[in-house]
Amino acid sequence: MAEHFRGELPRFLRILAAPAGFLPLGPALTMAVRRFARRKPAVFDRLGEYGKCSFLIEPSDLDVSFLMVPDGVRAEVKCLRRRASQTADVTVRGPLLVLLGLLDGTFDGDALFFNRAISVSGRTDALVALRNSIEDAELTPADFVGATGSLGKLVDRSVIGGLGLARRFTGSPIPGEPS
């Protein structure tokens, strides 16, 4: 399904991602997550023990992947070259737009499993926890890449535009639990 999205990738993000290491992306993201943790500590309370888990995020349409330990103000994000063999508690792989859709509420914890564009291995519970915690944060894509000001607005606009497209590939039923 990745090819459906490839052409839609926001140009800004393509530039960011293309030559891994060209931009100090890892430290920038680390700082962004830590800043975010100071601003919204409740998100990380919600995450609880899962904050210590490592998440390997592999956008299938980029040449880099991200290794994140979202441990609040001690959070760490590394930007890695693709195919560098890397292990993590949970690995999630899919088109970047779909992965970003996990952030803004386009895809919820359940849609995650229905969407075959994403593959998950390892500690599925950690990913569900991360997804549900982020859900409550009302996070925007700009928060994710650490962009602020007019740059942030640009990121939000382009990513959310792409997400409109991605939305069409999800939806549908859910596991039943009661109350």
């Binding site: 803004d104 509420g105 919820d108 914890g109 359940d110 859910i174 639990e177």
Partner: peptide, 11 residues
């Protein structure tokens, strides 16, 4: 009643 406490706010 609508089920879905695990669903996102958009949904």
């Amino acid at each position: 009643k609508i089920e879905g406490r695990q669903r996102g706010k958009g949904y």
